[in-house]
């Protein structure tokens, strides 16, 4: 039994070390890739970002609509239903925008990244690049990582905007909150610091989600089962990581 524990610990330390080295190489290669491989990065922004827009906008709208409904019914008890806009905007900008976007991003773009890189490995495409003296981390991994890092904050911003629109349609259009106080209360309540918190979170979550996705794909066991497992791990690990980071960033901004 102690032997098993020993081997598990050794495996974990080895994997973690490999992950750290991999991350350092990504960071080292990223600036050059932005200049030299801009076309590839732009294509990945399209893959991870533009192709996620529909799901982000639909989910953002309904999350905002629910915030409109819940905000109105709860705040009405205190005769404060005019603050629905402020509550919805604060929740979206600081919390729900970055967090739900990151979770949706992991499900839509993260899984695509992990399975694509894993399958490239399983079909010898990464080895073929190595043999053609092309570093697969520079050619395949870095552009995908950067595509995710750039897309995530933009998607989170879109999510929050569409969410506020959803809350507005429900609150003002359906439940009859005064339009003037909806926007005015929101403008008064949401400070620059709140927006900054949302931006910081979406950048951190973007780096975490993209890094985990490309790492899981790159380190996947090159079989059908291995790639499947890497895809699942991407979603699970991203969800856990994002929620832990969310707690830590929220605590520092209090």
């Amino acid at each position: 039994m102690f032997r098993d524990i020993y081997y598990n610990v050794v495996d974990f330390v080895q994997d973690f070390g490999a992950f750290i080295l991999f991350s350092l190489r990504l960071i080292m290669y990223s600036p050059k890739a932005l200049v030299k491989r801009f076309g590839l990065v732009a294509a990945q922004v399209h893959n991870a970002g533009a192709l996620s827009l529909v799901i982000i906008m639909v989910c953002g709208f309904f999350v905002g609509a629910v915030l409109g409904l819940q905000g109105f019914s709860n705040l009405q008890r205190f005769n404060a239903e005019d603050s629905t806009g402020a509550v919805a905007a604060l929740s979206l900008v600081k919390e729900l925008g970055p967090v739900i976007t990151a979770l949706l991003f992991a499900g839509r773009a993260g899984t695509a990244l992990a399975s694509e890189i894993g399958l490239m490995k399983a079909t010898d495409q990464l080895s073929a690049m190595e043999m053609m003296a092309v570093n697969p981390i520079r050619r395949v991994v870095v552009p995908r990582f950067l595509g995710g890092v750039i897309s995530m904050p933009l998607l989170a911003a879109v999510f929050s905007c569409v969410g506020i629109l959803g809350a507005h349609i429900i609150g003002v259009g359906l439940l009859g909150i005064d339009e003037g106080s909806f926007w005015q209360q929101m403008q008064q309540a949401v400070t620059e610091k709140d927006v900054e918190e949302g931006i910081v979170k979406s950048i951190v979550f973007g780096v975490a989600a993209s890094l985990l996705a490309v790492w899981e794909g790159y380190s996947a066991i090159p079989t059908a089962e291995g790639v499947g497992r890497a895809t699942t791990r991407t979603v699970v690990l991203t969800a856990i990581t994002v929620l832990i980071f969310d707690f830590m960033i929220t605590a520092t901004y209090l």
Binding site: T123, Q125, A128
Partner: peptide, 10 residues
């Protein structure tokens, strides 16, 4: 190098 399955970039 010619790989067993071709290993073309898909």
């Amino acid at each position: 190098m010619l790989f067993q399955n071709g290993a073309l970039l898909t």
